[in-house]
């Protein structure tokens, strides 16, 4: 659909959804276009017969035809509602629709702030926020991981049907993706896979995992964390997977010595998470999931390399991501040697 037709169609949809007499969609503008959805900003004003009024500063997400692993609009909307109920800071989900705009979509509140990682990690304006972030991120993760896996909003997520060993499933999934995707051999990735197989954590638990929890996917303002965004990779897995991913080398934005997203140490993150969950974090298990996370990102760079080589996109940015695989290999070797681990 032409974007210019969206506000009018949205007004008709909202009248039907809410029974409001007057609905106006204003300030409509395009925000970003991703691989799986387009985002628009808009302001919704509603007025009912009895004089009640409501105003929402909203973001509209219009989904592209379903990708391989991406959640559908309704699944993501339901997931947001569930985590919102559990106190996770997220955009408040407002309305969901299947075909009023020709494609599935949902509306959520628009959160103001900064999500560009480089600015959050480096700008003076976020210096105070950075001191708060490790604890705030740990608490948000604890809230995500507290959602009952039986919650029906989670039934559509990858891994929800699995009953077997979580760690085994995660390792097999990653090894398979690597072997299907690789264009050349990466002996470092083989070593990391082997290391992971030989160092499985002795305990694991099934939980809702965000799957892409990192600086760059959270909204931050001067007072710190405002919202957790980008839920497309949510799945059922081990909660420490999210902590390990957050500590990945590729999102420290020029502060490599600050292992927790360029804003703190992995030890501070683990301590705050431990306090928030009242459950000890085994440092060796966290190391396992940090190696897993770096390897997962390394394999994702190969996925993007393949898209470039196969001509799906000839974008120079995509081409250069292929040369970032070595950065992940370097980090993996350091972690396997035990550097940086207290």
């Amino acid at each position: 659909m032409n974007a210019a037709e969206i506000p009018g169609r949205l007004e008709a949809f909202l009248k039907g959804e809410t029974g409001a007499k007057e609905v106006s969609v204003s300030g409509f503008r395009s925000m970003t276009g991703g691989a799986t959805r387009r985002a628009f900003a808009c302001d919704l004003d509603l007025e009912w017969m009895d004089g009640r009024q409501a105003r929402h500063e909203a973001v509209l997400l219009v989904f592209r035809p379903a990708g391989q692993q991406a959640l559908g609009a309704r699944e993501e909307f339901n997931l947001l509602r569930a985590v919102h109920r559990h106190g996770v800071p997220v955009p408040t989900p407002l309305f969901v629709g299947d075909d009023a705009l020709g494609r599935p979509f949902y509306l959520a509140t628009r959160i103001s702030g900064e999500s560009i990682g480089r600015r959050i990690v480096r700008d003076e304006a976020y210096a105070a926020a950075r001191t708060l972030l490790p604890t705030q991120l740990a608490r948000a993760l604890a809230a995500i991981h507290s959602v009952a896996v039986e919650d029906e909003a989670l039934a559509a997520l990858p891994g929800a049907a699995g009953k077997g060993d979580l760690v085994e499933a995660a390792l097999n999934g990653l090894a398979t993706l690597y072997r299907q995707t690789k264009v050349e051999e990466h002996p470092v990735f083989e070593l990391a896979l082997r290391w992971l197989e030989n160092h499985r954590p002795s305990t694991s638990r099934r939980a809702l995992v965000h799957g892409d929890f990192r600086i760059g996917n959270v909204m931050v303002d001067a007072s710190g964390l405002q919202a957790v965004l980008d839920w497309e990779l949510a799945h059922i897995g081990d909660p420490l997977e999210d902590l390990g991913w957050l500590c990945g080398r590729s999102w420290r934005f020029g502060r490599p010595e600050l292992s927790c997203g360029g804003v703190g140490s992995r030890e501070a993150l683990a301590a705050a998470y431990q306090e928030a969950t009242a459950t000890p974090v085994d440092p060796e298990a966290l190391r396992f999931w940090e190696i897993f996370g770096n390897l997962r990102w390394g394999v994702f760079t190969l996925v993007q390399l393949r898209a470039f080589i196969e001509g799906i996109s000839r974008d120079v940015e995509l081409a250069m991501i292929g040369r970032r695989t070595a950065e992940t290999e370097w980090e993996l070797l350091g972690l396997i040697e035990g550097k940086g681990i207290a």
Binding site: V188, A326, E331, L333, G334, L335, G340
Partner: peptide
Amino acid sequence: VQHLRAVVAAKLEVSDPKLLGQGGG
């Protein structure tokens, strides 16, 4: 690991020379 470090370091000299002084982990 020594071998792999040397091979990856040679790649990083080209792709990201700044990263090399920083170690890993």
